[in-house]
Amino acid sequence: MLRALWRSPAVAGPAALVERNLVIYRHTWYLLLAEVFEPVLYLLSMGVGIGALVGHVPGLGGGDPSVGYVDFVAPALLATAAMNGAMNETTFNIYGKLKMLHTYDSILATPLRIRDVALGEVAWALLRGTAVTVVFGAAVAAFGLLHSPWAVLILPGSLLIAFAFAAAGLAVVTYIRSWQDFQLVQLVMLPMFLFATTFYPLGVYARPVQIAVECLPLYQSIELVREPSLGVMNAGVGLAALYLLVFGALSMALALHRLERTLVP
């Protein structure tokens, strides 16, 4: 039964693409460590420096009224790592495959269809994002920053985050015309990274700004990871999961629609 499912074209097609990327990854796995290096640096910088300046973070609903700054930031960095790990793959790397390497021209001459390629790339990006989160998560745990058994939810959470941003990245990359355009992507991603409660809680903002921030996919991603890792479980976590699922599915639909238009000669 499972074997038959695995062999069906709907699964085997995307799986073949994942396999391709895995073959390349065998030569370049160390890039994963490089990718984890950056969030670890942030974490150290927070732990050694900024944490002492900030002290404790007040007012996180339900749980501990004041949480240490590093404990507050670590989950946000985890969510961001899952996001970046997945999105770098479907933006930079896929742009290169679309415009420079023309990887898909030969693949689409085989029985694989555009949707197999799209699903395969998203599945791969999802694996990458999750791998980054797992390695960085191990570092976070080693620093003693996970405080609750609920923290195991970080794993499925990061899968969901990676899926949502992998799909979003795939949709975005179909609009990109040159490397210059990535500056525009940065112009959206950087403020999201800075303002989505990565470094300080929502309470700092005035209420209208709070509402805007709550609409950001990264904010929801951080919620999905931060609450369980601080041992706070509430409806917000479920809502965040739902948000990311819908956001990912819509992005995926858009990406498929766009790819059908750009890849067919």
Partner: peptide
């Protein structure tokens, strides 16, 4: 805006 003004609120309130 984010680190100076946003995070700054927490830092300045802490008087470390």
């Amino acid at each position: 805006a984010a680190m100076g003004a946003g995070l700054g609120k927490l830092v300045d309130a802490n008087h470390s």
